[in-house]
Structures are given as structure tokens and as C-alpha cells.
Simulated scan of single mutants.
Amino acid sequence: MKIVVIGGTGLVGSQVVNNLREHGHEAVAASPQTGVNTLTGEGLPEVLEGAQVLIDLSNSPSFAEEDVTSFFRTSTTNLLEAEAKAGVQHHVILSIVGAEGVDAGYMRAKIVQEDLVKASGAGWSIVRSTQFLEFLSSIADTATVDGVVHMAPVRFQPIASADVARFVARTAVGTPLNGTIDIAGPEVFGFDEIVRTYLASKDDPREVRTDPSATYFGAPLEDGELVPHGEALLGEVSYEQWRKAQA
């Protein structure tokens, strides 16, 4: 099966490509570096020729709401149009657990992307993931004010990117869901707790202050917004396993 992975050179995309190839599929990593530009449409007809599945793991270079919304609207529209012409049968995207509940421009942009895919009329699957363990460092940096990390005491269920890649690859080779699945890590933590533990493991001296008013990339948080509501598929990699592998 030929499967085109948009964003196939990134953190998750490169692992998806490897997983698919290990199982005998023709996985093609597509990105601006390989001559495929989803904003202009450059390279799409060529890379999609003979493909049965497209996985969209692309991301906007800017997280400003207007920029990221324009990115996902333009990119997704171009992909869906090119797929229809090429006869692609399954469109898979990676989205975010709780995107509709967090008051942030990036989350609203992901909902725009989801809605375009749902309305396309083609076979589709949406994999919604909780936050990646790999982003703990950037989360702490974004939440730092005057050397203190402010974290809200809400539930947090992060997942290793390796597990995300396995779920995405598995979904791509299956029958289109025409629906959404949630995926998450195997453990639930306090958001403040895991950031404090992670920084301590890195010998980072910053204080992590439990702050109910702390925001998440600028968005206010309520408990339950960063964990799945209802049934979810859980990854295999625990926090400790991931941390030791990183070390």
C-alpha cells in the first residue's frame, strides 16, 4: 500500500514512516524539504500518484491564531482537492484531545481542520492525542515567569511520540473510521506534579509553583480539559520508560 505522510520528516512523521515501512508498506515522507508544499500545492499531484492513503501531520510555522487558522484551512483544502483527483481513499489527521474546550487560537484552528476533513465526503479518520511527553521542556519554558514555573493543578495524561506514531500508522492501514479516536499515555499526573518531577530529573533548579490561575500556552485551564473524556486508546510507554530512554 502506498501511503503519503505529509510532515513525514518531523518528530511523529518520521516514526510513522519507519513503522509503515517495517510492515511492508510504501511510505513516502512528504514535506517542503522533499518538494511538497501543501500551501501552494507544489508537488502534490506527483507525490499522490498511486497512493491509497494520506496522513496529514503538517503544522504551521506560526502559532498566531490568524496564521495557524489560515495554514490549516489552506493546507487541508489543497490536500483534499488533490486527493480527490488522485483517487486517494483514506485521509488521516492527527489532532488534539480536548481541542474544542481549550480557549486558544491553535485549538480553534485544529477544529477548523477537523471540520474540513469531516465535510470532505471522502474516507477519513481523526486521531486525537493528548500532549506529547517530548514537549514537557517547552511547556515549562512557556510557563516560566521571573524564573518560576507556574503550573495549574489539573489532570495531565501525556503520551510518548513513539506511541502516537504507532496509533497513527495502525489507523492509516485500516478501514476509514469516518470518526474520531482519542489516544493518551498510560498514566495520569497532576500537571504541576509531572513538570516538577521532570525538571528535577534534569537538575533544573527552577521552582514549580502550583498556580490555579496559570495558563497553558496563554489559555486558561480547567480540570479535565487535557485528558480524554470517555474511552481512549492508551499507549504503552510510561513516563519513567520515556525519561530513561531520553537520558
Rank of each mutant, 00 (worst) to 15 (best):
P176I: 12
G24I: 11
A214S: 14
M107Q: 08
S213L: 13
S75A: 15
G35S: 07
E66H: 07
Y198S: 03
R21G: 12
K202V: 04
S31D: 06
L39D: 08
T144I: 05
F63N: 03
P220G: 13
E66L: 04
Q52F: 09
T69Y: 00
V188C: 04
E207R: 14
T210C: 07
V97Q: 03
A29Q: 08
G230N: 10
S161T: 15
R21N: 13
M1G: 15
R196W: 00
F71S: 00
I183G: 08
H90E: 04
V28R: 06
L221N: 09
D182L: 04
E207I: 13
K85W: 01
E134S: 14
S125E: 01
V53E: 08
R73C: 00
F191Y: 15
A119Q: 14
W124Y: 15
V154G: 07
G185L: 07
Q89D: 05
R155Y: 03
I6D: 04
D103H: 08
K110A: 02
S95V: 07
L233G: 01
I96H: 01
E83G: 15
L136R: 02
L39P: 09
G10L: 02
S238P: 14
V5K: 05
S58F: 03
N19E: 13
A165H: 11
E236R: 13
E207D: 11
G43F: 12
G35C: 10
A184P: 13
M1N: 12
E134G: 15
Y198C: 02
S138D: 09
E240T: 14
L39I: 14
L48G: 09
S70I: 00
F135E: 00
P158H: 02
N78D: 05
I55W: 07
S31R: 08
G179E: 09
T144W: 04
G10Y: 06
A232Y: 07
P220S: 12
A245W: 14
D192K: 05
A122G: 13
P220M: 11
A169I: 10
V12R: 01
G50W: 09
T130F: 03
V149H: 05
G101Y: 10
G174N: 08
P228S: 06
E83L: 05
S95R: 05
A247I: 14
T77W: 01
S201T: 13
T77N: 08
I183M: 06
S60T: 06
E134P: 00
T175P: 06
P176V: 11
A84F: 00
A143N: 10
D56H: 08
A160K: 05
N178M: 06
S75P: 09
